[in-house]
Design a binder for these strands. Sequence first.
DNA 1: AATAACCGTGGTACCGATAACATATCGGGA
DNA 2: TCCCGATATGTTATCGGTACCACGGTTATT
Lengths: 346, 346
Amino acid sequence: MNANSANVTIRDVAQLSSVSPMTVSRVINRSERVSPDTRRRVEQAISELGYVPSRLARGLSRQRTGTLAVIVPDVANPFFTLVLRGAEDVARREGFRVILCDTRADLALESEVIEEMIAHRVEGVVIAPVSDRSKSHLRRLTKFGVPFVLIDRTVPGIYSDVVLGDSTGGARQLVEHLISLGHRRIGFIVESDDVSTARDRQQGYAAALEAAGIPLDPSLIANATVDPDGGFNGMRQLLDSKNRPTAVFTVNNLVALGAIEAVREARLEVPDDIALVCFDDIEYASRLYPFLTVMEQPAETFGTLGAQLLLERIGGRGDDRDRTVVLPARFVVRQSCGASRQQSAP
Amino acid sequence: MNANSANVTIRDVAQLSSVSPMTVSRVINRSERVSPDTRRRVEQAISELGYVPSRLARGLSRQRTGTLAVIVPDVANPFFTLVLRGAEDVARREGFRVILCDTRADLALESEVIEEMIAHRVEGVVIAPVSDRSKSHLRRLTKFGVPFVLIDRTVPGIYSDVVLGDSTGGARQLVEHLISLGHRRIGFIVESDDVSTARDRQQGYAAALEAAGIPLDPSLIANATVDPDGGFNGMRQLLDSKNRPTAVFTVNNLVALGAIEAVREARLEVPDDIALVCFDDIEYASRLYPFLTVMEQPAETFGTLGAQLLLERIGGRGDDRDRTVVLPARFVVRQSCGASRQQSAP
DNA sequence: AATAACCGTGGTACCGATAACATATCGGGA
DNA sequence: TCCCGATATGTTATCGGTACCACGGTTATT
């Protein structure tokens, strides 16, 4: 009670319990070699003074901080929110704390953030990199001996543990579904191709078309930022093209939302005029209104697995080889693809 | 390039540039009193060695870490995600980093997390406390001289800066709206009353009823956890009661989602059989399907303001008095309340 | 010309913990 | 009885910075 416990140090505790700081340290760290009696006295002093050991000092002395960084391009994107939560959960269980960094998909900010994490001497990093150009930042981590795990995206030239979704296969399946519904002119709204996930999905898209003998028409591919605005603009571009698609595959859910708005603005309807499919579910939206046909990825598992791989490496338990984990997506057919019309009501 | 920069210290830089560590420190911290020539030499050495100063050491020595904690009951709740992002943003601009903590609405975990943040010597905390019983945890912060700002919820007996929504007024407005639509039996699904926000909303609910001369019927108030499951159970309870409500007000959006599912399961419909209103919008869901009538709160502003108040206090610029900021909510009428039927189509 | 004021820089101690080694104490075996 | 080893505890140096004060050399002041 009473006073301010802010500046209580291990020496104060030592003094009060008439032992050396070293013994107090032993008690704190549960190391053996402390007599029950002494231990009791020290614990008494600790609680009396309200002593909380400084992690700064401990980190400096031990040369380990017990801290991880999780770096994502957008915390507000439900996918990354879940990744974060998964990683945080695993980290906590293993006695690590997590510093969150949101790069806003900005390379310069990402670079800055990584420098900061190095300065903080985090013991590892779980990162969904902004793009291929994140390579130099990641190299910095390597140079400082900070292990990291890539989430959701690979970076050419960077070798590390990776947790990915099956972008190529998932994309292919989505597009094949559209083809099976009779679509031949299928648009694709995607971010710039310096993001591996975008490339992979584009590859799946192309593969599905090729397998069906449909020539790939570049005018059906629109580039966009990965947010609703991007989706809106991308869809508008596709709708304006003279050879308008009858179905569109968007690189993720947020893009799909904007795309739908563009369709509505053009006084058209999904799925009747434009069928739509995308990656990633929007949990809460789908609960309220199960509309989007999606490839649902186990977002939280991306985080838990990523943290697990990372912690193994930190603990020296990691395999020497880099590990790549590919998590399967789940195909969820709802209304936006137009399939429900054909399946009709029960 | 080449080797590992992990262990480069200020002394290494000093040696390479033939100055004392102190001078290097001066260069790093942009303090004046360094000749241009020396500065250049030191900077050269820094980049040559790839030196990144340790924040641990600096924090220990300076007795300030440049770190804040943001503690929320559920990162995956879009409201708190935005709070977090707002706080992170402001903190970064001011040169602070943020440690995120998710308490999962668990008091014990919250306590643990706060101890950890004290151990980390964070300079301040932005927290949406679990409940009134968070009081003892917050007292710990006070005892350690760590300033904090409460977000979204007050805690009786705790005096600090607070950023709140207008729960009472918002609730009253929502319920009055339902009343104006002709409803007299209005249910309320709410969490336990040891959360100030829940109390305030209940008070607004009661006030609206009283103003309309409608007696408050306790059987119309259902208690629930703040998530879709809670909403589901709560709504089921209300539907099963012999005097079923014709409209329901839920304490937030996630609860509303579950409530809607319960209505559907009972083969009823919103808003025809049960009108529904709640606090907090679900951004992405509403974009796809603007259905819920809500009191939309400026979540990100909760975070930015909270961080600002906190940083002011840390910087000693804070007003001596505790400040309470109440942010107005925006009433968004959509379909779930049933008003659109009456307003008819244009 | 003597003194003051300032500038750039270095020396030393310290922030709060811990690693590594040293020492005191005690019981037991030769 | 004496020495050995185990056990409990203390001492010292160190982690990587920075605060504080001191010092030699200029330049300004009178």
